[in-house]
């Protein structure tokens, strides 16, 4: 690991900026997006639903603590974006995560699972290499995802914390990209769950940084927040380059824990 994992202080805690800007806040009463746009992207214009980025999300979430999202960026390898930011307007921490892509990335299809705390717009904003912003938005009916308990079996969750797994899938026909799914056992506590026996909130404990590389080449780097579901699960694409390649993942959490995994790139489907 040669590159330092960067960090953006507001990530996951955009509310801080919001509450210090009374005017923005007043506007945000009706539509939080107005303030969010300003706080995260400044005055930069964002093209909406222009086809460059698409977002799949369920209209009604079955489990608010585990809402699957899939983002597709059109145009193939040539138009690999600079970054992708996922936002949930009405979550306590609206920025779910920001992914930035490197030369190891394939055409961008990225799927993950998020917590949705209230009926809310969910957004995927892509920044192209040229610096333009493009957004797709879906309205999701879900509630209470941020305060829902992280995992169903508390003992198992504790015992397996930090375990990583990578699944690899066969290339889609006609695609030069490969697909893989990274799974991390981590409670990704939102800190919004109050322990009724003690009267205190369970402190937030979540993955802040994640970097995936193919050999030395960056596939993606993620800066995450509390709106990512427990047991973070990211399906992504990468561009295979040759023989004896290794995919590596390094994740860091709020407790300073560093989790690492590495897997040889397989020639076909591992399932």
């Amino acid at each position: 690991m040669t590159e330092r994992l960067s960090r953006r202080s507001v990530l996951g805690f955009v509310g801080a900026a919001l509450s210090s800007l009374p005017i923005t806040q007043a506007l945000a009463e009706d539509d939080p997006w107005l303030g969010l746009h300003q706080d995260v992207f400044g005055n930069r214009p964002i093209a909406e639903e222009d086809g460059l980025v698409t977002l799949e999300a369920p209209v009604r979430a079955e489990d608010a603590a585990l809402v699957p999202l899939t983002v597709r960026v059109s145009g193939g390898d040539a138009s690999r974006p600079r970054s992708l930011t996922l936002l949930i307007d009405r979550n306590p921490a609206p920025v779910v995560a920001t992914f930035s892509f490197g030369e190891g990335a394939g055409e961008v299809v990225l799927a993950t699972r998020v917590r949705v705390d209230a009926y809310s717009n969910v957004r995927a904003v892509v920044e192209t290499q040229a610096g333009s912003l493009h957004m797709a938005t879906r309205y999701v009916k879900a509630s209470g995802g941020c305060s829902a308990p992280a995992l169903k079996d508390s003992e198992l969750a504790e015992a397996e914390l930090g375990k990583m797994r990578l699944r690899q899938f066969a290339a889609a026909p006609g695609s030069t990209s490969r697909e893989a799914q990274l799974m991390i056992r981590h409670p990704n506590h939102s800190g919004l769950q109050m322990n009724q026996l003690t009267g205190y909130y369970i402190p937030a404990k979540f993955i802040t940084d994640l970097e995936v590389r193919r050999g030395a080449a960056l596939v993606f780097r993620m800066e995450g927040g509390i709106s990512l579901s427990a047991d973070p699960n990211i399906r992504f694409t990468f561009r295979p380059a040759g023989a004896d390649e290794v995919l590596t993942a390094v994740a860091k959490d709020t407790d300073g824990r560093v989790l690492r995994g590495s897997w040889p790139v397989k020639s076909g489907d591992d399932s």
Binding site: F13, G15, A16, L18, G191, L192, Y201, P203
Partner: peptide
């Protein structure tokens, strides 16, 4: 009710 360490005003308030 404690305010979690790095909690913003808005988040603490809502909780």
């Amino acid at each position: 009710l404690g305010r979690p360490p790095h909690w913003t005003r808005r988040q603490a308030l809502s909780g």
